[in-house]
Amino acid sequence: MADSRIDFTAEWIPSKKEQKNSKRENPIQVRITKAVLETGETELLVSNLEESKFSTEDLVTLYGMRWGVEEGIKNLKPRIKVEQFGCRKPVGIYQEFYAHILAMNMVALTGMAAGKEIKKKNAKRKLTYKYNWKNTFLHLRAKIVKLFIRECVVKILDNLIIKVALNLVAVKKGRKFPRKDTDEPTRVNQYYK
Rank of each mutant, 00 (worst) to 15 (best):
K176V: 02
M112E: 11
A99P: 04
N132K: 13
V153Q: 15
M106H: 01
T186C: 15
F97Y: 15
R141C: 04
K119Q: 01
A165V: 06
F85Q: 01
R150G: 05
G92T: 11
K121G: 00
I118F: 00
L138A: 12
G115M: 00
R175K: 14
N105Q: 08
Y129P: 09
A123N: 01
P178K: 05
K173I: 05
K126N: 00
V164D: 03
V169W: 01
N132A: 05
K155D: 09
A108S: 10
Y129E: 07
Y131W: 08
L140H: 02
G86I: 08
H139I: 10
T182D: 12
K143Q: 10
K143L: 08
L109G: 01
V153C: 11
Y192H: 09
R141F: 14
F148Y: 12
L127A: 13
V91E: 10
K116P: 04
K155I: 14
Y98P: 07
Y94C: 06
L127M: 09
D158W: 05
I156M: 10
L166D: 06
R141M: 12
N189W: 13
T186E: 12
P178D: 04
Q190P: 02
A114V: 00
T128S: 09
A108E: 04
K173C: 09
M106C: 12
G174D: 07
N159K: 14
V164Y: 06
M106D: 02
L109K: 02
K155A: 15
L157C: 03
A142R: 15
V171H: 14
A99V: 03
I144A: 10
N135T: 05
T128Q: 05
W133P: 00
T136Y: 10
N167R: 07
F97G: 10
N105A: 13
R88E: 00
M104E: 07
I161A: 03
V91M: 01
G86C: 06
G174A: 04
L168S: 01
H139S: 09
L138M: 08
I149L: 11
T136C: 13
K146A: 15
C87V: 03
M106L: 10
K120P: 05
Q190W: 09
A99D: 00
N135E: 08
K134W: 04
V154S: 15
V188Q: 13
I144K: 12
K124M: 01
I161R: 06
I156Y: 06
R179M: 07
F137P: 05
K89D: 01
C87Q: 13
N189S: 13
V153P: 10
K124S: 12
Y129K: 07
F148L: 04
P185M: 04
E96C: 07
R125S: 06
L157H: 06
H139A: 08
L127S: 13
V164G: 02
K124C: 10
A170S: 06
V171W: 15
P178G: 11
R88Q: 05
N159S: 14
F148R: 11
R150Q: 06
N122H: 04
A114I: 00
C152M: 12
E117G: 01
L166C: 06
N189E: 12
T186I: 15
A123E: 04
K155R: 13
T136Q: 09
K119G: 02
T182Y: 08
T128H: 15
N132W: 14
E184I: 05
K89I: 00
K176F: 02
G86D: 05
T136H: 06
V171I: 10
R187Q: 07
R179I: 11
K180Y: 03
K116E: 11
N135C: 03
V188A: 10
Y94R: 14
